[in-house]
Simulated scan of single mutants.
Amino acid sequence: MDLATLVDREEIYIGFDAANQWLYTDWKGEYTKERSRATCLLMLETIRAHPCAKILNDNTNVTRTNVELTQWTLWWLEEMRQAGLQCIAWVYTRAFDAREATEATVVRIERPRVATFDDLASAYMWLQQQIVQTT
Rank of each mutant, 00 (worst) to 15 (best):
Thr93Ala: 14
Leu85His: 05
Ala38Leu: 15
Thr60Cys: 10
Arg99Ser: 00
Arg113Thr: 07
Tyr124Met: 03
Gln130Ser: 02
Met125Ala: 13
Cys87Leu: 00
Thr65Ser: 06
Leu42Thr: 13
Asn59Ile: 00
Gly15His: 03
Asp26Cys: 12
Ser122Lys: 07
Phe117Tyr: 09
Arg81Ala: 14
Arg9Tyr: 00
Thr32Leu: 04
Val91Thr: 05
Trp75Phe: 15
Trp126Ser: 09
Ala4Thr: 14
Trp22Leu: 10
Leu74Cys: 11
Asn20Ser: 11
Gln82Gly: 07
Val67Ser: 02
Thr70Val: 07
Leu44Ala: 08
Ala19Thr: 13
Trp126Val: 03
Asn59Phe: 01
Tyr92Phe: 12
Asp2Ala: 02
Ala53Glu: 08
Ile88Ser: 10
Ala115Cys: 10
Val67Phe: 00
Leu69Tyr: 04
Ala104Asp: 10
Val91His: 02
Thr70Met: 07
Val7Asn: 03
Leu23Cys: 08
Ala115Lys: 14
Cys52Gln: 01
Ala115Tyr: 09
Thr25His: 09
Arg108Lys: 15
Ala98Pro: 04
Glu68Met: 04
Ala101Cys: 01
Lys54Pro: 03
Leu56Tyr: 06
Trp90Lys: 06
Thr25Arg: 06
Thr70Pro: 12
Phe16Pro: 02
Glu45Gly: 04
Lys28Ala: 09
Met125Glu: 15
Trp126Cys: 07
Lys28His: 13
Gln129Val: 02
Asp2Gln: 06
Thr105Trp: 01
Thr65His: 01
Thr105Tyr: 04
Ile55Asn: 05
Val62Ile: 11
Ala38His: 15
Phe96Cys: 00
Trp126Phe: 06
Ala104Glu: 08
Ala123His: 02
Gly15Phe: 01
Leu44His: 08
Cys52Lys: 02
Thr93Gln: 01
Leu120Trp: 10
Thr116Asn: 10
Glu34Gln: 15
Leu6Lys: 09
Val62Tyr: 00
Thr73Trp: 05
Val62Asn: 00
Asp58Cys: 12
Cys52Pro: 01
Asp119Ile: 07
Val7Ser: 09
Thr102Ile: 03
Thr63Met: 00
Tyr24Arg: 08
Arg108Asn: 15
Glu30Gln: 09
Glu34Thr: 15
Leu3Phe: 13
Ile12Trp: 02
Asn59Thr: 01
Ala49His: 12
Asp17Cys: 11
Thr116Ile: 04
Ala38Asn: 15
Ala83His: 08
Trp90Pro: 02
Asn59Met: 04
Ile47Gly: 03
Pro112Lys: 05
Thr60His: 11
Leu74Lys: 14
Met80Asn: 09
Tyr24Trp: 08
Glu11Phe: 02
Glu10Met: 04
Thr63Lys: 01
Asp2Glu: 08
Gln128Met: 14
Ala115Leu: 07
Cys40Gln: 13
Cys52Asn: 08
Thr134Gln: 13
Asp8Thr: 06
Trp22Glu: 05
Ile14Phe: 06
Glu78Leu: 12
Arg35Trp: 08
Glu78His: 15
Leu42Val: 10
Gln133Lys: 14
Glu110Lys: 11
Thr65Glu: 03
Leu74Trp: 07
Thr135Gly: 13
Asp119His: 13
Lys28Tyr: 07
Gln71Leu: 12
Arg9Phe: 00
Glu68Val: 04
Val132Tyr: 13
Leu56Met: 09
Thr116Gln: 06
Trp126Arg: 07
